[in-house]
Design a protein around this nucleic acid. Structure first.
Lengths: 357, 357
DNA sequence: CTGAAAGCGCTTACAG
DNA sequence: CTGAAAGCGCTTACAG
């Protein structure tokens, strides 16, 4: 027998010695490959249990030159919002970290306003025969079709940003939107008096798609806060479906004509910056504003005091954790929590400099 | 030449081939070891640059059975506060992650109120001849003595929780305390009216130690907020140096006799829970409370509404990042940012369930 | 100052 | 169904 320095005496070699087989056979059992007699398999499994064998990932990844290929399906950034830059950064950070472990990540981008682009990209992924998928399931039915196909091919997939329950994803990383809106209610309640009029704004091109539904969950959360705490603030809402800045101005100047007494505004997504921009132009001061997402635009308004609080759900971390969980599950065989709700972070003028998205 | 599957053709073998030397010599140059002629060294270094050689960490850690030993020097948890459980958790998480990379972490605990215990533990570490140190420099002079000794022995060290600038630490992970207090000012300003009386409480046994100085930085931050924003709230302060709950009660009932009109309290550390406990017992309602740290006790009061906001600086992450940065610097030769200010997180009743410490 | 060789703990063809 | 052997890309004694 070769001299070996494995002081732990619990590697494949030791298992093989005890089972009176070769390490190749041990390897087959460890990886659940075929070609081992039931009897031999049982013996080896027993020894593995006895020794509490932990494979050496270093050696495993080094010896196996198999490349793991992941695919990512997320919206591309648009002029309207660069929100999706953050998840992409997190994904690329994970990619860099896992590169030396033999992981490659292919990126597929779709247009949030174009269902067809989503379908097209998802088909490209299926052709690609990847080992794992990370996606933002913007179009629910199409996402179900896609992930059903993944499941048939035994490709694990992870949702970020929004979840589709019961779709047997490996896991979900994203916010609890209702609670997030609920927190928004609290912040606004601190900011304005008991009777002040509050305006909720949803900026979303289509009013019946999944994205809009996400905004509604936040709206419900906010309303629930005021109901549960028996506040009598009048709450009005505005759906903005033309999402360029010029149209937003029109919507806003109209509503301020009807409701000049609005004291607080809750914008249910990152477009809070556009609303803030209007308020500045229109010379409206002392309106308490809460909105979403750590974008440069929004931070500028936070700094100036036009926006009071931004709520954020760590989009970068969502992307990062999404990729890492695929790796941990596939390579390390770790079990992953089905749902991981991201923190609901409160960003203000005083702490934004220290915030990590 | 042996058949090799290194498709990247940029390992030590390729470098050796081009330089017409053995891989052992290449290894010597890569690790800056002695015993290589200047000429050979230059040739090899040039080739390394040309190929943009990136060592394979997997192979490196696998082949080198050298164990890296880190030491951690932090306070043990006391009955008064289990704050230090969190950094320890982060440290142990990093340890688990790095175990397979040959990293071991020795833990040394001292008593926050006993300088001698700090000195004793730090000496034990020096005897231990470790490869890196993570410490919370509670006693400044003693920490300087200790880290001076580390530097002499070429042992890199990382500060968490509080910093000692110019001590040439590898890096620091902790809060910007002034900004943290400043944010506390903002939160209190939201919570109470313009003229309401505000009470600042520092709970700390000694009034001239580093820990107390930390609290003062937060106090300064809070005061600065009100000054910069020209608020006229009367601000009073209370130093509590007997830190058991019974004594705290006495201090508080005394100050409420003198100042029955206190509308908001800012407690500069995790002892906010003890203050909340008093308020409940004393039947004081409608006092706006902001304090520190995500401890079970405090969260209970947050839940009940006695505490309005907790500010947190991710203590677990401090411990985790501290260890990881030692590893990244020593093993991967990565360059580390000198100062990494932790986020200043705002935790409330609505978002605490999603907070990660 | 330098190199040949064994080894880290796995995986992967290949042969039987 | 099973095993011997080469190899992953480094590091480490050891010999000269």
């Amino acid at each position: 027998m070769k001299k070996t320095r494995n002081t732990e005496t619990s590697g494949v070699r030791e298992i093989a010695r005890r089972a009176n087989v070769s390490i190749a056979t041990v390897d087959r059992v460890i990886h659940n490959r075929t070609g081992v007699s039931v009897k031999t398999k049982k013996i080896i499994e027993e020894i593995i249990r006895e020794l509490d064998y932990q494979p050496n990932i270093l050696a495993s990844r080094l010896a196996s030159r198999k490349i793991l290929r992941f695919a990512v399906l997320i919206p591309h950034t648009s002029e309207e919002s660069d929100y999706w830059e953050a998840p992409l950064e997190g994904i690329e950070q994970a990619e860099a970290e896992l590169k030396q472990f033999g992981v490659r990540v292919g990126k597929f981008f779709f247009d949030q306003n174009d269902k067809a682009s989503f379908i097209k990209q998802s088909r490209l992924i299926l052709k690609d025969k990847v080992d794992g998928v990370l996606l933002a399931p913007f179009f629910v039915e199409e996402s179900i079709v896609f992930t059903d196909a993944c499941r048939k091919s035994n490709i694990p997939f992870v949702f970020i940003n929004s979840d589709i329950p019961n779709q047997e994803s490996l896991c979900y990383f994203g916010p609890n939107l209702f609670k997030s809106g609920y927190l928004g209610g609290h912040l606004i309640h601190y900011g304005v008096g008991e009777e002040s009029k509050i305006l909720i704004i949803n900026v979303s091109r289509e009013i019946k798609n999944y994205n809009h539904n996400r905004l509604l969950r936040k709206e419900e959360g906010l309303r629930a806060y005021f109901e549960n705490n028996r506040k009598r603030n009048p709450i009005i809402k505005l759906d903005i479906t033309m999402t360029d800045n010029r149209s937003i101005y029109k919507y806003l100047s109209n509503i301020f004509k009807v409701h000049p007494d609005i004291k607080a505004i809750f914008v249910t997504n990152s477009r809070v910056g556009s609303v803030a921009h209007y308020l500045e132009k229109a010379g409206k001061k002392n309106i308490f504003m809460v909105g979403y997402d750590f974008l440069n635009d929004n931070i500028g308004f936070l700094e100036k005091g036009t926006i009071d609080f931004l709520i954020c759900h760590k989009p970068k971390e969502q992307g990062n954790r999404g990729i890492m969980s695929l790796y941990q599950s596939i390579v390390l065989g770790a079990s992953i929590d089905k749902v991981y709700f991201m923190p609901i972070d409160i960003v203000s003028k005083e702490n934004y400099a220290f915030y990590r998205n």
